[in-house]
Computed example of a mutant assay.
Amino acid sequence: MLESLRRILALIRKELLATLKDPRGRFVLFAPPVIQCVIFGYVASYDLNDVPYAVIDRDRGGASHEILARLDGTGVFHRVANLTDEGELKAYIDDRRALLVLVIGPDFEREIQSGRSAALQVVADGRNSNTAGTALGYVGAVVEDFNADWRTAHGAAQAPLSLIDRVWYNPNLETRWNFIPSLVGTLTMLQTLLLTTLSIAREREQGTFDQLLVTPFRPGEIMVGMAVPSVLIGAGQATTILLVAQLWFRIPFAGSYLTLYSGLLLFLLAAVGIGLLLSSIAATMQQATLYTFVLMMPFMLLSGLTTPIANMPVAVQYFTRINPLRYAIDIAQRVYLEGVGFGRLGADLWPLAALALVTLPLAAWTFRRRLT
């Protein structure tokens, strides 16, 4: 057991030196995350065509029915629940079942009928800043149309409705508050997947793979020795992005580092498993690189980074469930902005653990099979 551990540690040291000794390699590992983090933080944006919302209607009059009917008739908003109290409101926002919650007071219609301005409160989930801002803009447009029609029909001197918005987890709706925590998963996976995929392919192409096979290393030890450096480098890149987020962009961190890094560890294990599987299949570094980028593009598109998953076709949404990047982005956003703990991350943690338990043994089996 001790000899096996020594061999694994020696191989880990060899892999880290091979990756970090080259100045160009160090630049490729750490400069792109910083550069891309800054670019995405300033220029990225979202589209929106589906807004799930819930309602707390304490008035239940004709005016509240009309404003809700206007929202439902847009084709963008769809009502997911009629709530009764603020406790349910928080649960729907936290669990992402609703992007918005509309709160209508008990004297809503009476105030409108008397010529005063009635308040319509909208609580928005600011973890996705552009989506929340766009949705609030849609609500504002519907309210403006309602006000214009009401004035025309009733000759009112002032707007009957005033919109009061309240954004949770990102009160100023800054895009970078949403995007940069997401990059913790996205950029880390890109580099980790590429490094892991190239590991065995590089040994084959450089002619050193056969030398490894005649050493005392067992196939399982070689796999562990190839995997651990990628996990360590991935954790280092994630730390670099977190430092940029906090020291450069001043985005406040609301959660626990232990929770965040625990989730990232499961994510990195799943990513490394996929990378080792590709590496055991690829015969050359060129093939390994091609496999990585062919796989990475769908992962990014199906992660919810640029397009909300709820806006995707239902059939496509099922494919996102086997995408580890989807869960990593959700973990990073929820821990960083919302400050959630382990108890509310189960829906993200267990799929990552399952993906790691499938991909790592499958990669080891494929590796052993290629040796025979």
Rank of each mutant, 00 (worst) to 15 (best):
G220R: 06
L266H: 06
I331G: 04
L163V: 06
P160S: 07
A235L: 15
Q317A: 07
E86I: 07
G105K: 01
L213F: 04
L136I: 09
L265M: 14
M189L: 10
D85A: 12
W177V: 12
H78A: 06
R127I: 13
V358E: 04
D85G: 06
Q36E: 13
N49H: 13
R96V: 10
V316H: 00
A44L: 14
A31M: 12
Y92G: 01
S4P: 05
L83N: 04
S114I: 03
Y53K: 06
I233E: 01
G62R: 14
T175A: 14
Q246W: 05
I222E: 00
W350F: 13
L190R: 07
D22H: 06
L11N: 05
S45E: 10
G137H: 12
S129W: 02
E205R: 00
A235I: 11
M1T: 13
F342Y: 14
K21F: 04
L290T: 02
G87T: 12
Y42M: 05
W150F: 14
I233K: 03
V335S: 01
L136K: 02
V139Y: 05
P216E: 03
E203D: 10
T306W: 13
W177C: 03
F179G: 03
F267P: 03
A282T: 04
N128E: 15
L83P: 00
L68V: 07
L83H: 02
L163M: 12
V294T: 07
V101L: 08
E109S: 15
L260G: 07
A63D: 11
L295F: 15
G61R: 00
V167M: 03
G341W: 11
G255Y: 05
P23G: 10
I12Q: 10
T152A: 15
F342V: 10
G263A: 08
N147P: 00
L337M: 02
Q317I: 06
R166H: 10
L194R: 05
P171M: 05
L357F: 05
A310H: 11
A98N: 10
A141K: 07
L277Y: 15
R218S: 13
T175N: 12
L9T: 06
V28F: 15
E66C: 04
Q317R: 15
S64G: 10
L2H: 08
I233F: 04
T19Q: 12
Q211T: 08
T307S: 09
C37P: 00
A353W: 09
P361T: 09
I104T: 04
T239M: 14
L337G: 01
V38L: 15
N128W: 11
L102S: 09
A271N: 09
V358T: 12
P32M: 08
P313H: 11
T359W: 12
A201L: 11
L268R: 03
A270E: 01
G275Q: 02
L302D: 02
R321V: 06
V101Q: 09
P219Y: 03
A270S: 06
T134P: 00
E66N: 13
A356Y: 11
D210I: 00
C37N: 09
G140H: 02
L20S: 03
D95W: 06
Q191V: 15
L2Y: 09
L100F: 11
I35Y: 03
R97I: 07
R127G: 15
L213V: 11
